[in-house]
Computed example of a mutant assay.
Amino acid sequence: MNSAEPLPPAGYAEVRIVAASPETARVVAEVIRRCFASTEQRSYPAGPEGGTRLHLTVDTARATEPARTWLSASRSSAADRPDTDEV
């Protein structure tokens, strides 16, 4: 995330999906929406080679059971550090 971009409110997460096709990006977004309440997705071109980038905001406080189980099991200090290839 760009440092000039504001952080989402506590309990929310910004999700960005980049895929070669719009359909692939939509499938991934649909899976995320089955686990979390979310905003309407926003779609952008992914770059000069084509592809799609989708953005959505998810409410982690309104997670369904599979997501709650995963969130509880995945809490660690390592999860708070971004990967080196994140932008």
Rank of each mutant, 00 (worst) to 15 (best):
P6A: 13
R75C: 09
P22F: 11
S77V: 12
G11C: 01
I32Q: 04
S74A: 15
A13K: 01
T39P: 02
T84M: 06
A4I: 05
T84W: 10
P9A: 13
D59A: 10
A73V: 07
S74K: 11
R81C: 08
L7H: 05
V18P: 00
E40G: 01
A78R: 15
T24P: 00
E5F: 09
V18H: 03
A29Y: 07
I17W: 00
S38R: 01
I17Q: 01
E40I: 02
E23A: 10
E49A: 13
E86P: 00
F36N: 00
V87Q: 12
Q41G: 02
D83W: 10
M1G: 02
N2M: 14
P8S: 04
E23D: 05
R75Y: 11
E14R: 10
L7M: 07
A13R: 03
D59S: 08
A63F: 00
A10L: 05
E5P: 02
T64M: 09
P6L: 14
D83Y: 10
S77L: 15
S72K: 15
T24V: 04
A20V: 10
A61E: 07
V15W: 01
A20D: 13
T57P: 02
I32W: 12
R81N: 05
D80H: 03
G51K: 06
S21C: 08
P82I: 06
C35D: 10
L56G: 02
G11V: 01
S21W: 10
L56T: 07
